[in-house]
């Protein structure tokens, strides 16, 4: 028997979530992640962009005991199970911060801002955080 979510549910749109803030200082990163998880229920074409300080959301080794906040970075590793596999990270933003792909806790596609811009142009909906 097919599961309800395997049935055809109409047109698929392209949704891009653009993440530009480091985690913890503001609520943007966590809010974005929660909306992304919810959006997974709607079977849409979802992609995540990490640019500017947003690349720090994916930084390995986040330890939040000292600031008394929940470390939500392990949740990015759950995205694959939610069939969200398009994670794009700006090469420039990594380099400006002395980071490389090895510093990130999930598999991503590192690309230039102009490549990301072209993907952005191609979206039905862009959600900005």
């Amino acid at each position: 028997m097919a599961e309800p979510w395997e049935e055809d549910e109409g047109p698929v749109k392209k949704f891009m979530f653009v993440n530009r803030k480091a985690p913890y200082g503001t609520i943007y990163a966590l809010e974005s992640l929660e909306v992304v998880l919810i959006s997974a229920a709607f079977d849409q074409d979802v992609s995540l962009v990490f640019v500017d300080d947003g690349v720090y959301q994916l930084k390995k080794g986040q330890t939040t005991d000292g600031i008394g906040m929940k470390n939500f970075s392990p949740t990015y590793r759950a995205l694959e199970g939610y069939d969200i596999e398009k994670l794009y990270v700006s090469k420039e933003s990594l380099e400006e911060r002395g980071l490389s792909e090895d510093d990130l806790l999930v598999d991503v596609q590192v690309m230039s801002k102009s490549e990301i811009a072209d993907l952005m142009d191609d979206q039905d909906v862009v959600l900005s955080f």
């Binding site: 599961e3 998880l37 997974a40 229920a41 939500f72 392990p74 949740t75 199970g81 939610y82």
Partner: peptide
């Protein structure tokens, strides 16, 4: 413990 969230039902079912 691993992901710091409770999974959505479809994710739970699959896992």
């Amino acid at each position: 413990d691993e992901y710091q969230i409770a999974p959505a039902v479809r994710v739970l079912t699959k896992a």
